[in-house]
Amino acid sequence: MTRSPPSNEQVAILSADAEDIAAFCHEIQQADYRTTVFSSVDQLDEGLVRNPCFAVILDADGIELNDFIIRKLKSRHPETHFLLASRNPFHPELQESISRILYACLRKPANLEEITYLFRSISRRIPNRGTGVLDQGQSVETP
């Protein structure tokens, strides 16, 4: 199967909590990004194959996550930036993911300024998006 490049305006949300989904969708759409919602890891994985997104917000409060699941998602979708959202500031069970895989951790409730800042930061890391900063720490001059 040929994969499409990730949409730079599309954000996936993995959550089972209707209130959190509504809050994240509202804030993300306020920042001029489109959202797609998934309620299981398998649905997310299949959805990203069909319609890659530049970022995914993983709700650690409503979906059971572990390092293996996050590592598998990242290996299957390396172009996607994964963010963790939770009300709990501590997730020792996700130590590897937090230190090596996740782009950022968001504290709930959703916050427009934080989301906008992170998505702009991610956009700057994607080659051909303006700043030329690459994930490997190399930089490319832009006009």
Rank of each mutant, 00 (worst) to 15 (best):
Cys105Thr: 07
Ile70Tyr: 03
Ser123Phe: 12
Asp45Pro: 05
Ala18Lys: 10
Gln138His: 10
Phe119Thr: 07
Ser123Leu: 15
Cys25Phe: 02
Ser99Ile: 00
Phe90Val: 08
Val133Phe: 14
Ser97Gly: 03
Ile13Gln: 03
Arg125Glu: 14
Arg125Gly: 15
Glu46Asn: 13
Pro78Phe: 10
Asp59Gln: 04
Leu94Thr: 00
Pro78Cys: 09
Asp59Lys: 01
Pro5Tyr: 03
Val49Tyr: 11
Gly130Pro: 14
Thr80Met: 08
Pro5Cys: 00
Val11Ala: 04
Ser4His: 07
Val140Ser: 09
Ala16Thr: 14
Gly62Ala: 15
Tyr117Ser: 15
Leu102Glu: 01
Ile21Asn: 08
Arg124Ser: 12
Gln43Ser: 15
Val41Asn: 05
Arg76Glu: 13
Ala22Gln: 14
Met1Pro: 08
Lys108Phe: 05
Leu14Trp: 02
Ala12Gly: 03
Asn8Val: 03
Asn111Pro: 11
Met1Leu: 08
Ala60Phe: 02
Ala104Phe: 01
Val37Glu: 10
Val56Lys: 02
Val140Phe: 10
Arg3Gln: 07
Gln29Lys: 11
Pro143Ala: 12
Gln10Asn: 04
Glu64Met: 08
Leu73Ile: 01
Leu106Thr: 09
Leu118Ala: 07
Ser39Val: 13
Ile69Arg: 01
Leu134Arg: 15
Gln138Ala: 05
Asp61Glu: 13
Glu96Cys: 02
Ala104Cys: 04
Glu64Asp: 13
Ala60Met: 04
Arg76Leu: 10
Ser4Trp: 08
Gln138Met: 12
Ser123Ala: 13
Ile70Leu: 02
Pro5Ala: 09
Lys74His: 07
Arg100Trp: 01
Ser99Lys: 02
His81Ile: 00
Leu44Val: 06
Ser7Asn: 06
His81Trp: 03
Glu64Gln: 14
Tyr33Pro: 07
Leu102Gln: 04
Asn66Gln: 00
Glu93Gln: 06
Ala55Lys: 01
Arg87Ser: 14
His91Val: 05
Ala104Ile: 00
Pro127Arg: 13
